[in-house]
Design a protein around this nucleic acid. Structure first.
Length: 172
DNA sequence: CCCTGATTCGC
DNA sequence: GCGAATCAGG
């Protein structure tokens, strides 16, 4: 997604309206808040009415000379989790990672308080992404509780989703 | 922990 | 020019 005149104008407007960079990024779509902030600076419209930062002497730090893209780990089972899982794998992992995922529909449902439920737009890195209900229906929602560190699900749904190979029963 | 904007610098 | 990574701060 590029910065067309249209998108730049919208950016200017929203920034002027006081929306945060992340809000603007969501509004525009296809860009991150970093992209928005970067653009804001290049356009020279930073420092939005707020007191100028004391410009603290920022610490220089060694940048990672960019690692070659790690090949995606092989995922066996529900490939829906492929994207969610791959970035979380440790770099030193050498053996093939096998993840078995049970179909959510087969599993007993956990009642999730309505106020905890979230839409897909509300999911963040640390939000449980366990889907509940028919994705096509109005009642569809995601668990929304706090996910386990580095995992796409909360503790409860991690237990359901990831069955250690040794624990699998015969015939199931 | 969530979030904010600011800055640097590999691309 | 772009934006991820990484800062400082609320």
């Amino acid at each position: 997604m590029s910065w067309s005149d249209e998108r730049v104008e919208l950016l200017k407007k929203l920034w002027g309206d006081g929306l945060s960079a992340s809000q603007i990024a969501a509004e525009l779509g296809g860009v991150t808040r970093n992209a928005v902030i970067g653009k804001v600076h290049r356009l020279g419209l930073s420092g939005r009415a707020k007191a100028a930062r004391p410009a603290a002497p920022r610490q220089r730090k060694v940048r990672r000379p960019s690692l070659p893209p790690r090949p995606a780990a092989r995922v066996i089972g529900n490939t829906v989790l492929k994207v969610a899982l791959s970035p979380e794998l440790d770099e030193e992992v050498e053996e093939e990672v096998v993840v078995q995922v049970r179909a959510p529909a087969v599993v007993e449902e956990l009642f999730i308080l309505p106020e905890e439920r979230v839409t897909i737009l509300q999911l963040t890195e640390q939000t449980c992404k366990w889907p509940v209900g028919d994705p096509g229906s109005a009642e569809f929602y995601f668990c929304g509780r706090r996910s386990e560190p580095g995992m796409p699900y909360c503790e409860h749904h991690c237990r359901i989703a990831y069955q250690p190979a040794g624990d699998r029963r015969r015939g199931r």
